[in-house]
């Protein structure tokens, strides 16, 4: 493992010696801060949430945010929903689903996509044509439509959400890693490894993979925001997680029905999504500029 960290560090050093604007560092730091807040909220949800996210109180339904209500202000900082549940607590618990689905599915997708790209680029031949034709196919379709098709057929649920992400996003990793594997395979260090009799798996995992991991990490970070938007979108449509689990998407879907009376229900969960996605995008841009500016699209 140490070798890829070294590869990463040397790249970072390379680009750091070049032109780097201080503004970039600032935005990277802002990104880290935003993500840190969300992750801490998700981990500490039972402590951080002021109320039970599922505790209903029909007498206290549709209470406006704390600063807007003249009496009893502050008990519900971001107001309550149509069943009297605390919006803030539900947002805090909702971060768990978004982060869980995001991180798990992106990790699986990145692993599969990277392996396929590695195999296609190293072995060439039949593996290459099959894998790359599939990449072309997946990349030539609107991604939301693919997601709907998969959910439409498999049905909603967290497991199927992960499946959707894997099936629709792997090709992005494969395409980039494939190209890089092609060019690395012709470099001396791979030649040398082959000459001294290293086995193919050894070349793949010891020599090629460490050089490709930085790209995978950049792609994965940038993908996280995208996947979180997808998850919340499908939950919004009622095609994500079961409606009993608090998620940002289902909260917005509830909020849509009460736009005339309870603006807070349709506003704050979206803000949570925006902050999380913005955080991952800022962090991803920053890592990319430091590690591998060639990935910029």
């Amino acid at each position: 493992m140490a070798s890829w960290i070294r590869a990463l560090a040397s790249r970072t050093a390379e680009s750091a010696s070049g032109e780097t604007a201080p503004r970039l560092d600032l935005s990277g730091a802002v990104g880290v801060l935003m993500i840190a807040v969300v992750i801490i909220a998700a981990i500490l949800a039972p402590i951080a949430a002021p109320h039970d996210p599922n505790a209903q109180d029909l007498m206290g339904r549709l209470k406006p945010p704390g600063w807007q209500s003249p009496f009893g202000g502050g008990r519900f900082l971001l107001g309550t929903d149509q069943l009297g549940r605390d919006v803030l607590s539900r947002i805090i618990y909702g971060s768990r689903i978004s982060l869980f689905v995001g991180i798990v599915s992106v990790a699986i997708t990145a692993a599969i996509g990277t392996m396929l790209g590695l195999v296609a680029g190293y072995y060439r031949g039949v593996a290459e044509s099959i894998v790359m034709r599939c990449v072309d196919l997946v990349m030539s379709l609107p991604f939301m439509l693919l997601a709907l098709a998969v959910i439409g057929i498999t049905g909603p649920g967290i497991r199927n959400l992960v499946l959707v992400v894997v099936l629709t996003r792997w090709a992005r990793y494969t395409r980039v890693i494939y190209g890089q594997t092609l060019s690395y395979s012709e470099r001396e260090f791979v030649e040398a490894a082959r000459v001294i009799g290293s086995s193919s798996p050894r070349i793949l995992f010891q020599h090629l993979l460490p050089n490709l991991l930085p790209s995978t990490i950049v792609l994965a970070t940038l993908d996280l925001g995208f996947v979180i938007v997808l998850e919340s979108g499908l939950s919004f449509l009622g095609l994500g997680v079961p409606p009993t689990v608090p998620t940002w998407g289902t909260m917005l879907s509830d909020g849509r029905a009460y736009l005339n009376t309870a603006w807070w229900m349709g506003t704050f969960p979206g803000m949570a999504i925006m902050i999380t996605v913005l955080g991952f995008n800022l962090l991803g841009d920053w890592i990319r500029d430091r590690m591998d500016p060639t990935l910029r699209v």
């Binding site: 917005l252 603006w263 349709g266 506003t267 925006m274 902050i275 995008n281």
Partner: peptide
């Protein structure tokens, strides 16, 4: 542009309605 890219389109829709 950064903020715009981080906003889910359906939430933008909800904000516009509001």
């Amino acid at each position: 542009a950064l903020v715009g890219q981080a906003m889910p389109v359906y939430w933008t829709g909800i904000l516009l309605i509001l």
